[in-house]
Amino acid sequence: MNALLALLLRDMRLATRVGGGALMGALFYFVVVSMIPFAIGPDLNLLARIGPAVLWIGALLASLLALDRLFASDHDDGSLDLLTMSTLPLELTVAAKAIAHWLTTALPLIVITPVLGLMLNVDMSAMGFVALSLVAGTPALTFIGLIGAALSVTLRRGGLLMAILVLPLTVPVLIFGVAAANAAIVGPAPFGPPFTILCALSLASFVLGPFAAAAALRQGQE
């Protein structure tokens, strides 16, 4: 447990130092969401209606692009080999890395969401629900993306391939995430069902992601 905590802290420290790129995800999210009104026009009513969807798409792309580097830097300097050879179960190691990644990339992104929501004319009272749906849903994005990150590091190809592999798998998260956010804003459907399903998706991917990613990494070592 101590070792996992140390790994978690190490990853967080690496991500937050200069050159770590922890805030890159949040920055990208901010830029992408700001681009949307230029594409669809400054119609505030329209923006309010599609606001939650825009925020979710932005979060999806940001967390996906940030995941590209999750294993790559460890692979480059060889520490990934040490991690796979250590006595810790690789599944737990990988899960700890994913949690560290979520804390350093997804959390800042959620923190700036209310500001972006303001720009998209999303109602302030509903903003809390949008942020809540992101809190519940982004872990699923991280853990599904984890599989893609592990696959792309073993195939020595990253970037676009990873996005192509992972994006279709995130369809359910996107559907229920936006549904939960919209339910809070426009109604009439209740917030509960999509939100609880979103939580279920996050928990399920918390189990599936580390196992699949660990299997992919082990294969890379052979």
Partner: peptide, 28 residues
């Protein structure tokens, strides 16, 4: 040899996900 197991993992993850996708798309 390198892509074989990567593809296998993706196939299994996809197989687990397809019913979930089906369900969520129906719901949506």
């Amino acid at each position: 040899n390198r892509s074989a197991r990567a593809a296998a993992i993706l196939a299994l993850v996809g197989a687990i996900n397809i019913p979930i996708i089906k369900f969520s798309v129906d719901w949506w």
